[in-house]
């Protein structure tokens, strides 16, 4: 029984290709996820048309702004890593995590004050869409925390930015989803 331990190379492709391969894989993952989110969005209009129940508009606008803001901080973190500014990167990753948590808290608060129930069709749609999205936000926060912990130890640099780039791209993707979900849930009538 041979127990070889070795650091595992992600792929045997030529080295300059690694980043392109990883990036393509991530984008394909986004395409696939887009269909999931798109189907839920279609289900929303299929069942309800443009009708919606009354929601807390101020809260909706606030969490939307917070999520967009977190995209800006995430962008800053990625840019900083690409310019080897590790300190700024760590701080802005931290800001992104905080903003993400505030967003998730906002959704949870919205759930607690919603005047409709999941057994009504708009309630089903609302809780499912925000729930699936919030699951992605929470996952993103977890990944951001893992990356942040590594960034604090200075593991990333302009030579090795992929983990930061990937998690930031994922975060932007979650933001793009909300860009469509917010008007579909809060602004139609």
């Amino acid at each position: 029984m041979a127990l070889a331990t070795a650091h595992h190379e992600a792929a045997h492709a030529p080295a300059h290709n690694h980043l392109a391969i990883n990036r393509a894989g991530l984008w394909l993952f986004f395409f696939s996820e887009t269909i999931l989110f798109g189907l839920l969005l279609s289900a929303r209009f299929y069942l309800e048309g443009i009708h919606r129940e009354e929601l807390n508009q101020a809260l909706g606008l606030l969490i939307t702004v917070i999520l967009l803001l977190s995209s800006v901080t995430a962008y800053t973190a990625e840019t900083a890593i690409e310019h080897d500014n590790k300190k700024v990167a760590s701080w802005y990753l931290f800001f992104t995590i905080v903003l993400g948590l505030i967003f998730a808290g906002g959704v949870a608060y919205e759930w607690s004050i919603a005047h409709f129930h999941r057994s009504e069709s708009f309630g089903s749609i609302f809780f499912t869409m925000t729930g699936i999205h919030a699951t992605h936000v929470i996952t993103g926060v977890f990944m951001l925390i893992l990356v942040w912990a590594q960034a604090l130890r200075g593991r990333y640099s302009s030579k090795n930015p992929w983990a930061v780039s990937a998690v930031v791209m994922y975060w932007h993707f979650v933001d793009v989803v909300w860009v469509f979900y917010y008007p579909a849930l809060y602004l139609t009538k």
Binding site: Y75, M169, D175, V179
Partner: peptide, 12 residues
């Protein structure tokens, strides 16, 4: 908004 984020933030 989506196009802006996808182009400038996600660097498609």
């Amino acid at each position: 908004k989506a196009v802006l984020i996808i182009y400038y933030f996600m660097h498609i």
